[in-house]
Design a binder for these strands. Sequence first.
DNA 1: CTCCCACCATGCGTCTGCTGATCGTCGAGG
DNA 2: CCTCGACGATCAGCAGACGCATGGTGGGAG
Lengths: 225, 225
Amino acid sequence: MRLLIVEDEARMATALQRGLIAEGFTVEVALNGPDGLHLARENSYDAIVCDIMLPGLSGYRIIEALRAEQNWVPVLVLSAKDGEYDEADALDLGADDYLVKPFSFVVLLARLRAVLRRGVRPRPAILACGDLTLDPAARAVRRGDTEIELTPREFSLLEYLMRRAGDAVSKADILHHVWDAHYEGDANVIEVYVGYLRRKIDQPFNRHAVQTVRGAGYRLAVDGG
Amino acid sequence: MRLLIVEDEARMATALQRGLIAEGFTVEVALNGPDGLHLARENSYDAIVCDIMLPGLSGYRIIEALRAEQNWVPVLVLSAKDGEYDEADALDLGADDYLVKPFSFVVLLARLRAVLRRGVRPRPAILACGDLTLDPAARAVRRGDTEIELTPREFSLLEYLMRRAGDAVSKADILHHVWDAHYEGDANVIEVYVGYLRRKIDQPFNRHAVQTVRGAGYRLAVDGG
DNA sequence: CTCCCACCATGCGTCTGCTGATCGTCGAGG
DNA sequence: CCTCGACGATCAGCAGACGCATGGTGGGAG
């Protein structure tokens, strides 16, 4: 589990880092607000432990900025203030939990675990055409209940066709999206891969799920064949 | 928003009830543990505010019982104790937040709102995939009833995979979350550690719990293999 | 010192992606 | 209806990528 600590007091930051590493976390530290926001933006942390009083950019602003960008990484706020309204503010801003300094490390750990447990993973929709389904997150394809193994290329071809199910998709489009934008090779690869796909996803005695549109490209049947 | 307050001190219970009703909540009160558990089982609340020291049945037991029944209603725990381990215990048991008496009503409100905003989601304190379980707090892994010893690295790899069970996880992701963010070494370490894990957590005659998704990474079987 | 853990390097077997050639099929025009 | 050309399908084969096992190295804890 990868954490970011944003804390300007170097001693506190180091102590936290050591303790959390000892607990098996992967830990990075930012010593001021702007660095913290930058790191949080550039990387994907499982949670952020963030001081409120920071040089350059307060913890509040960091949370605000992240939430404005639809970044819902769990944030656990630390503060030396003891005014109760600060806490209310932090939670209403979208912090996930709040600790007042001085706090005990054990409590920090427990709260961190609680926050991690909640997780943040908006699951992308599962694509479906008839009984043919594709789950991009799990990288899994099924016909009904039986799992179908696809190679990476086959998978991304099918994903592209399923996202445009019912539309005729030109080979040029396919080449651009499934292969590289400036792919220089033979367009015959597409035919080859459509062939592979059909062998794996078609059911016997049914028409092809991937239909040929002569002269135009291919189209995935909305009902999945 | 419908709340349940479980609190044996009548004055405190009444004060809370009044305050929360004034804030627009629908509030019910139980004055002891068994009543509280009963009400929580029979009704569907948006959140429960629960004292720890209760006649008949402690707050811990109530949470434990609810969680065991897969009831993930958010629970906010109140306690007069100030021992830090109590708090850690409560959170690890599956409470969603914790306040030490005496607390301010404003803070209670803010935390309640935070808890409500998160909504109800399954968030067991112990990760489980089939009969494979991992307890982050205890750092313990079991297959059924038999404990499995893992080294720290193995443990955090398995933890990360279990938190994303069912999803294909790329090696880059794994490297970033389980190893250091700017780890410069060979991705081969992952393969090595997946190998170690498999040797320890797989049961004979079953398929791998950690499945290889060629070209994409690894995926932990939701049923634990 | 010894043990254990994290990591590295190597080698091997398998799978993927792609090519080039051949074979099949569709459909327009005679 | 038949012919022919263009388009699409299929196949074998190969180079390289990928995943995995294994043994070895180094460093830290006991």
